[in-house]
Write a protein that binds this DNA or RNA. Structure first.
Lengths: 129, 129
DNA sequence: TTAGGTGCAAAACCTTTGCCATCCC
DNA sequence: GGGATGGCAAAGGTTTTGCACCTAA
């Protein structure tokens, strides 16, 4: 991966941001330094940097919202191969929310936990991934 | 909330789905029963049903992807009021992945955990929410 | 009767992509 | 020099919205 002025600036912005900026926020910040940069470049580089492990993409898991008929507390497992989502029984309870409240001082109302990996049928097919 | 043919069908589809359908998948399924239903109606109803607690929306947290300069394992806290995202130190380790592997038989590669609630500054302001 | 819901289509977003010029190595 | 990268603008996909008509209560 080549080093360009744009890429360096984008990386610097994301690294130094106290918040967790959206692509658009990164764009705004970088434009202060490189007014002519384009939004497309920001997207391209964020993607590349995330793939290279230089920054982390907070996953919206790459796809559109999904809905779940089960309103009980439970978690999800998303297959990275086929994209399907499976339910996983809760095993944390709300104790963990209290832990985070103590740690942050914020009012914690809940959490969601998503596992990712390869589901049984995709594991069989590829076998060696 | 009024009971309409469309709304009933949408609820039934989401409730009985084994998967976690996207809005579009719900649209497809409902159209088998009500060919004339519109995608807009599906979106509207999914949103209403989620607000009413009848179904669950798997959160993409209602906004665009965010990026994080910290590549260490950690979790997030999202303030439901201001939308800001804060880091939370990891307290689970990867043991939990092993638990889910045993439970599901799937290959678990990782997880992400997001807490939601009200952050300190928003809590101060409203005080009584 | 009438407030709320529907269908339709356009608009609003967010993100990706194609193309050509430009720049790093 | 040559391939990777950037700028620009158009396209793509998802979700929302305005409006006129319809329907459950």
């Amino acid at each position: 991966m080549r080093t360009t002025r744009q890429r360096e600036a984008i990386l610097r912005v994301v690294r130094s941001a106290d918040s967790h900026p959206t692509a658009d926020a990164v764009y705004d910040a970088v434009r202060k330094e490189i007014p002519g940069i384009s939004l497309g470049t920001v997207y391209r580089n964020l993607k590349l940097l995330a793939e290279a492990g230089e920054v982390m993409a907070m996953e919206n898991a790459g796809c559109s919202s999904r809905f779940d008929g089960c309103t009980e507390v439970h978690h999800h497992f998303r297959c990275e191969v086929c994209g399907r989502v499976f339910d996983v029984a809760d095993m944390l309870g709300s104790d963990i929310d209290r832990v985070v409240e103590a740690q942050t001082g914020f009012e914690v109302r809940g959490h969601c936990l998503e596992f990712r990996g390869v589901c049984a049928s995709c594991g069989e097919v590829s076998g060696r991934e």
